[in-house]
Design a protein around this nucleic acid. Structure first.
Lengths: 208, 208, 208, 208
DNA sequence: CACTAACCGAGACGGTACGTCGAGTCTTAAC
DNA sequence: GTTAAGACTCGACGTACCGTCTCGGTTAGTG
């Protein structure tokens, strides 16, 4: 995943010494967190102590792999991210963008996912390295998908040549985040993605 | 403000007895938090214990007014919100929207402000009542300003008659939030507001 | 007792501020330790965590008063020491010495007492200040009683004029310690004190 | 030595198979402990983990030989005990006893020796088997030397015929222990042994 | 000479206790 | 009845060792 295996792992240069780290323990920890989140345990209730108890693991085994709760949660989020897939047909820019936003919407709906998003956003100030790491390996990967779609649209002539790609990505991602994370309680109608893409494509100005 | 003065205050019906609450203490607490935030103290370092020490106040004095750190922070955010003003001339929808977004951008740049935003966002799951309270008295007030502008634009014929107002608000607010809170580190060029409004008005579709 | 009230207690100079320390908590802690010792809990099983649980007290409340388990145990020992009394009639040196040794023997037989003795002896190297404090306020007090008895014996002519008082104290205390602490399992016959005193008085040399 | 080679050693009945235990490792461990003790490391700081690190040995290598820290320390003490020798000429009871006590005094002065004594004393309650083992193989051996000297004195008529040998041993050993272990800080004058023996022989009673 | 069982250092494992910190509540004297 | 101060119980923090287990890699004998 590129996020895990960062903390105190042995350097691949020298030969592996001592008992290797248990993959079973690692899985038990991450799945323990997911299980707790699915049970509606909030982030502040998600103590390292409790995760260890749930996973049937010593606290030290957690701290051996991650520097603390935050780093662990980033990896759990990465685990969820692994399930993120987009079915972009490439037939039209409109279709691809809608497919992408639908995928984002589904992710946001996943149990615990938005709570985790919140946490990583929260940690941005406290732990800049963590935030940067997360953004480079998760956020940027997603944004790149959109950039590719948009650039192809410009090349094909479907989108205006002077389009500000970065700004457009923000205009697609931003509203989706507002709905799924900030105003989680607000309903997200099924055709939200389509309406958002259309609004972006057609513009708000009256054309009489 | 509507947010403060909620917790454990004596009912105005019966006569006030004993020593009245010190307004000086209240100011000292809120300004203590602001001072700490300006000094780069992160939210997790912002303990009630530390706030009390900084403000030269007993912990009980804080708990007498607010239910906990979260409620206190909402009031501090409301304090900041009080400085939020928009100079909307009413001359054109474009100008008003740009003026509004510029005001949002300035708020986001305020020291500690985005950290507080993060916190309230974070608390959404843990403390739904708090989130709701915050949204109704701060967020909705802001959104109402935009709705008014947009509806006036529709009436004037500047905006298309079938415009989805709520969605459009999200498309203006969302990207701004992404910049000022999520990707705080990304540069926010001076003309960002104008470019965002224009992109929204004109649409992305190529018009040959 | 002179041993307690050492750790982090407020200086009597300035006025007492804040909630005073709970004497009930203090009693609960010390009596909790005594209760555990009586239940046959060994010193290494006597964790701070367990004492806190038994006494129904937070760990911090213990650490607020004592620097750690060792200091606490010295105070518990002092508590036991408070029950140490000798019924010396002053009629004869022999009688007084026997009475004293009997008192020592009873103390050693007290549940938990010898375990505590062991601990303090043990800590001698690790924590010299603690050991010194203990010796000055407990051990020396006891030895002084014996010195007085012995000096009175010399004045009366019951004991030889050139008697080495310190050495004689050691010769009385040492064997008793060997029996009650070191070789706890060895039987201590009822007339042990008398035989010890007589052996000391009469000497081992054959007198034909 | 009689103490070592107890733990998990292969039964001599069946043929020895596999790699034999490294004597070098064993020496490294014991000398590691002695080295640490000489460096002023206290018993509570003397963790198995640290001993293993110091000796350049895996923890399992220690646990393969001894059941834990306590058993290891008994063996280290036995190592020291090996240096205990008495030069008893047999010419007079007085001379032999003094020679013996001098040997004890020298042992007590050895670096780390008294700390180890303390430890074994300490463990008496927690680990009775250990204490018994230690007493039978170290303490009793020493005491037997004294019993022999005393009985010879009685036979020769140097000592009174009704002498309580056990009690007399205690009266010789006890004061020496008090000085070298309990009151380690008290000076032990060169002629202490002689004065102690003389006091025991002559008695305290005034003989006018 | 190959086999193989038990050793070796290293270090991860599930635990327990450590001593500290903060949460939110309670109890003083002072005003 | 408030105030600042500082106690209280509770529970999580992150660390250190415990005694055990598991690696890859020796190091004898035996077959």
């Amino acid at each position: 995943m590129g996020l895990r295996e960062r903390h105190g792992e042995h350097t691949p240069g020298r030969p592996a010494r001592g008992r290797p780290r248990s993959e079973a323990a690692e899985r038990a920890i991450i799945e323990g967190v997911l299980h707790l989140l699915e049970d509606g345990v909030s982030i502040s209730e998600l103590t390292v102590e409790r995760v260890a108890r749930t996973a049937g693991v010593g606290k030290a085994t957690i701290y051996r792999r991650w520097g603390g709760k935050d780093e662990l949660l980033v990896d759990v989020l990465a685990e969820l991210e692994g399930t993120f897939t987009v079915e972009a047909t490439g037939e039209s820019v409109r279709g691809d963008l809608i497919a992408y936003l639908e995928a984002v919407r589904e992710m946001g709906g996943t149990k615990g996912s938005s709570a985790l998003w919140r946490t990583v956003i929260m940690q941005g100030r406290d732990n800049p390295k963590l935030a940067e790491l997360y953004h480079h390996s998760v956020v940027e990967r997603r944004r790149d998908l959109m950039r590719t779609v948009l650039r192809r649209g410009i090349e094909r002539g479907e989108l205006r040549a002077d389009l500000d790609v970065e700004l457009t990505v923000d205009m697609l991602v931003g509203p989706m985040l507002v709905r799924t994370i900030l105003h989680e309680w607000r309903p997200t109608p099924d055709d939200l993605s389509a309406r958002l893409v259309d609004a972006l494509l057609e513009g708000a100005r009256s054309r009489t």
